[in-house]
Simulated scan of single mutants.
Amino acid sequence: MNKLAVSLITVVTTLLSTACMNSAYNTTENETIDTNNSAMVKKVKASNFDVKNYNDETVKIPVELVFKDEKKEVYVDIKKGSTIDEKVDIILKELSEQCFNGLPILAVVNESGIARIELVELDNSKKSRVSWATDYLNDYAKEYTINNIVKNILREDYKGDFVKEVQLYYNEQLVTAD
């Protein structure tokens, strides 16, 4: 009876933690994440940076959202002339709201094009049932979380200055795809 209960709890936990995950979403040979105790990502097959002109002052940039059984591309509005930090913040805000239950994601891009992204837990006073550690950085969802964030920040097809490398942190520790 205990084995059945443990198995049932494991199945339910797995299903809940992968609610925003696509089971077919795996790293391919064109995607490389440095797992040698570093979360620095140098080359990743990024989604096509197909910027669409919205008007004279705004462009639409695609954000690829990966859900349980589907991929969906949405466009975020970004003002022309926005800094790299502003563009990254807008992309991360959309990812947070759509795939990570609104959990905070902070980013700083240095002058070399390296983005330091920090996954931040909600304030305890908000009593959220969702957390980075238990829901998105567990053994089942960590690779999905890393790839979903990194693929939307690295834009290989973008002609101009943008993020060249990504460092992903949680509680001041590098997140690695062990």
Rank of each mutant, 00 (worst) to 15 (best):
N2D: 13
L8P: 01
T10I: 05
V11L: 14
V11W: 09
V12M: 13
L15E: 10
L15D: 09
L16W: 12
S17N: 13
A19W: 12
C20D: 11
Y25Q: 02
T28M: 11
I33F: 09
N36D: 14
N36L: 13
V41H: 00
K43Y: 09
S47P: 06
N48I: 08
D50L: 11
K52T: 07
N53Q: 08
Y54N: 13
Y54S: 07
N55E: 00
E57W: 08
V59R: 04
V59L: 08
I61K: 03
V63H: 03
E64F: 01
L65A: 00
V66D: 03
V66G: 04
D69A: 05
K71H: 07
V76D: 00
K79I: 04
K79V: 08
G81N: 09
T83A: 01
I84E: 09
D85P: 00
K87F: 00
V88D: 05
D89N: 15
L92V: 09
L92Q: 11
K93M: 02
E94G: 03
S96K: 05
E97T: 12
Q98F: 01
G102W: 07
L103Q: 12
I105N: 04
V108K: 14
V109F: 04
S112P: 00
I114Y: 05
L119G: 02
L119M: 07
L122R: 11
L122V: 10
D123R: 10
D123C: 03
S125K: 12
S125N: 12
K126L: 15
K127E: 12
V130G: 04
A133V: 04
A133L: 09
D135S: 14
Y140H: 07
Y140P: 01
E143M: 06
T145Y: 09
I149W: 02
K151T: 05
N152L: 05
E156K: 12
Y158Q: 05
G160R: 05
V163L: 00
E165F: 06
E172P: 00
Q173P: 01
V175L: 02
A177C: 10
